[in-house]
Amino acid sequence: MRDGLKKLLSFAAVSAAVLSVLPGPVFPSGADAAGGELPSGESICDRFVEVSGGIEAFGLIRNRVTKMTIEMAAQGLKLEATVYAAAPGRFYSIVESPAIGRIERGVSGDVVWERSLMTGPSVKEGEERAMMLRETAFDRNIHWRKAFKSAECTGIEKIGGTDCYRVVMTPAEGEPHIHFYEKESGLLARVESIVHSSMGAIPQVSSLGDYRETDGVLVSWSVALEIMGQHRSIKTVSIEHNVEMPEGIFDLPEDIAAILSAKQGG
């Protein structure tokens, strides 16, 4: 029945964490589509970094705590989530509500794990693990050259009435993501991707908006997520940078360590 719910909610939390993005200034060279030629994908991505505040401003951010709400209005559900992230790729998220209990997900070193009251503890493997490691890299869309091996602009499409460059972002492994950057502002407007879970691969569309300057960088405070025909609205409530993280927040939980130990014959 609502078994897809838990999975989708956890996807939403991850997506929101990953999609904290930023702004900046001008379009680099004379590569505008008005001249008939498309700019290179690399220049579009670099422009996004610039308009988001620039690589130096992002370099000053070591960690981030984001609190958000996830609302599925049609289904009458609202959840609260908190995401702890730190460079270069430490990650812990918690989504909680009486409707689903508690779902925690984390990346501790190279271990990707999940603890869900409903489905139990698990250590992620295969595509799901690889995807989580890629997606939880800190400020991935800023340090995009580390996350993607290529960025190719394939055209201009209207997203919500606004002209956007369509950029195919290809990671070292896994399916390409399609990014849409606004032609005029340079901001990232939409991401189309495939989400991998232990249950299977699911297409997802994330629309970003409500960019706000936050500690010297531009961050999207609103993400509309379309997944399996459901719409969910993710609103950021607060963002804190360079904070004292709770002790042990990125550590492996005991039951996850026990699963790993059993797996290794310990």
């Binding site: 897809g4 999975k7 249950m199 299977g200 699911i202 025909g229």
Partner: peptide, 15 residues
């Protein structure tokens, strides 16, 4: 089985 995907109800063995 949904219109968009097939979701396997994979078990997570308890420790």
């Amino acid at each position: 089985v949904t219109r968009e995907a097939r979701l396997d109800l994979i078990l997570n063995p308890r420790p």
